[in-house]
Every structure is written in structure tokens, then in C-alpha cells.
Design a protein around this nucleic acid. Structure first.
Lengths: 201, 201
DNA sequence: ACCTGAACACCGTTCAAGT
DNA sequence: ACCTGAACACCGTTCAAGT
């Protein structure tokens, strides 16, 4: 019984740490002070470190649901026959942008997670990325998107745009405009006036 | 004579601080330790602060030449009759991207400088931005670029792309690809397949 | 098992005291 | 005039000691 109580308390501590972290990240971004999170939880700093050995482990606990949701959303869109390939892709990219806006600094964590295989967010980000790739491929196969664009490029431009808007207040109408321009760069047009090399050998 | 010597020494100190700062920024990005810069210069930390009261003042001393160069480059391109408006714009955007890649973290400083009127980099960035706007307008007037795009959007997407590439090593071929896609988003195409709302009333 | 917090090695920034 | 660096208020991270 003593053990069960200890485990229960530990679980409780974990949940309280996560709640405080969500608060802190929402207020100060993903670089919020870990000491401050421990302080708010009324727990020693060592306790935070034992539950979450790195800042990324903490982020992962908070975020991987979001990445999973994004992956499920992609699968949903792939299976909806009423939604055209390009429309499905653009819808998903909007969801991605909305998700990346959750916390200040999150765009940075996402780009790092995509590139660094040792990141604790790598797995969920890679799955999210793979699902986006399927949406991209389908739109390319349908002749609606430039065939020379990679998932990396697609995600980098979207996340880079989210980042840019975040640097300055992060107004959501600005975000919508940037996404529109970025998306326009993906589209394949019948006769290109310039800058489009998607049909080169 | 003593005064002249003191002034000369101060100037010398200033130059040595700038050299150390350039080194440190090149190695560690624009968030490099100011204490470390003072240490390398073999100067008290207070001396650095008196010469450059803020990190931005230091950045400004290092960078405003670059922004001026970018502005001059724009004027040059505007006056070259042999270069088509779109080509001139894309050339300039490439120069902007190359400049923004100078230091890790510089994209952040640029976006902040553009938005914040109190930034010490604001003046040179605003001049740079204004010159880019002239290039953009000309390409729009020539019917080669979407008329609904603003300088802010154009710069944000370019700098956002530079930022994204910087998060992962910063390979320059990746940069070139991203710029191509971003630029493609600016171009006005005769018949849009989707995502282009540039001709709406 | 789980938790604590002092200790270490750093920051940015200010300001009284020195030449 | 110009320079110094101790002092203050913070960090992230580790680890011996406590329950």
C-alpha cells in the first residue's frame, strides 16, 4: 500500500509539473525557466529533472498528442474522396501552422526535431512528416503541385512562415496571408512566367 | 595630447570589441555571450557596456553596412535597364537571404528590427525594406508579381526560409531550393490552378 | 521510491570606485 | 575621459543527503 501511494503521488507530481509547464510555455514560450516550473509546482528542481531529464522530454510529454492528431488528420484527409488532393494538402498545412503556433519557440523545436534523430520529439515528428508526405505525393500525382518539391521544403516554408509571424506579435490574419503566399509557391501552374522549374528533366 | 591619446585608445578599444564580437557572433550566433566578448577583448565588462549599451547597439555597429549595401544594391538593380523587373527582384531577394545568413540568429534580429521602432537596427532595416518595396512594386506594375503581396510578406517568407534552413546546419543548396519555392509563390501566373487570389477586386 | 536543495558554472546588467 | 570588476539577480544541471 505504501508503494501504491508513492506511485500515485509520483503520478500526481508528474501531472502537476505538466500543468505548470503548459502554463509557463504558454506565457513565456518553450524556453521558459525550468526552475520557475519547479517553483510553481512547489517541487524541488531535482524532482522536475527526474521526471523529465531534458527540456525536450517535457515538451514531448506535452506535445506528442498534437503531432499524433496531425498525423490522424492527414490520414482522414487522404481517405475523404470528396476533398481534392490539393485542397486536402492545403487544409493540412493550415492545421500544421495552427499547431506550430501553440507556443512561442515551438517552430524551433519542430525544425530541430525533424533534423535531429536524437531528439525526443523525433519519432512523433517523423510520423507527422510522413503523413504530410503522402498528402504531398497525392497532390503531385494529380498534377496540382510542383513535382520537385520535397516534404522538407514544404514543411520548412510553412514553419518558417509561422516563425516569422511569431517574431512580431503573431497576428493571425498575417499568418493567413503568409500561408496563402507560401502555398501559392507549391502549386503547379500550366504556363510558368518564371521561377518554376518543376518540369525540368 | 593626453586627451587625444585617450580618444585614440577608446577608438582602439571600440575596434577591438567589434572584432571580437564579429568572431563570437560568427562562432556562436547573435546570442553569443557578451561577457565572453569582453573577455576576449581583455577589457572589463563595463567597458563593453559603455561602448555598446545594448546587444543591438553592437549588432548595429557590425551590421548596418550590410543593410546599406542591400539598399544600394536595390537602387543599382532599379537603374539597370537590361534587367527585367522580376529578375531584379529575385536577384535582390537572393542577396537579402545571403545577408541574413551571415550569423546564426540574425533572421530573428531582422524581423524584430523591422517590427520594433525602438530597435537600434530599425532605421537601416526600414531603408533596406523601402528599397525592396520599390523593386516589388515595379515587378507588380509589370504584371509579373501578384499584386496582393506586401513587402512585409515578401521579406517574412524569405527570412523565415533562411531561419528554417539555419535550424538544421544551413546547407546552401537547401537554401537555394527554398528560395526558389518561396519566389514561385510571388509570381503571377496567367491562369491560376488554385491559391492565387491576386486578381480579386 | 521518491524528493530536496545546496553547489557549480555560467549568464546579463549596473554602478561605485579607481586612473 | 575612460576603465574596472564586484555585486545582484537570475539561469541550467548535477548529485549527495534525506524521508
Amino acid at each position: 500500500m505504501a508503494e501504491t501511494t508513492a506511485r500515485t503521488d509520483a503520478r500526481h507530481t508528474r501531472e502537476r509539473l505538466l500543468a505548470a509547464a503548459r502554463d509557463a510555455f504558454a506565457s513565456y514560450g518553450t524556453e521558459a525557466s525550468l526552475r520557475d516550473i519547479a517553483r510553481r509546482t512547489k517541487v524541488g528542481i531535482g524532482t522536475l529533472y527526474r521526471h523529465f531529464p531534458t527540456r525536450e522530454a517535457l515538451l514531448e510529454a506535452i506535445l506528442d498528442t498534437n503531432f499524433d492528431t496531425l498525423r490522424e488528420r492527414a490520414e482522414q484527409l487522404l481517405e475523404s474522396p470528396s476533398i481534392a488532393p490539393l485542397e486536402a494538402l492545403l487544409t493540412w498545412l493550415n492545421d500544421l501552422a495552427v499547431g506550430a503556433r501553440t507556443y512561442q519557440g515551438l517552430p524551433h523545436s519542430i525544425m530541430v526535431a525533424l533534423a535531429d534523430e536524437n531528439s525526443e520529439l523525433h519519432a512523433s515528428c517523423a510520423a507527422m512528416r510522413a503523413s504530410g508526405e503522402r498528402l504531398l505525393r497525392r497532390a503531385q500525382d494529380a498534377g496540382q503541385v510542383r513535382t520537385d518539391i520535397t516534404v522538407y521544403e514544404m514543411i520548412a516554408i510553412i514553419i518558417g512562415s509561422v516563425w516569422a509571424v511569431q517574431q512580431d506579435g503573431g497576428l493571425s490574419d498575417r499568418m493567413a496571408r503568409l500561408l496563402d503566399v507560401a502555398a501559392h509557391g507549391f502549386v503547379r501552374h500550366p504556363t510558368a512566367a518564371g521561377g518554376d522549374r518543376s518540369d525540368r528533366p
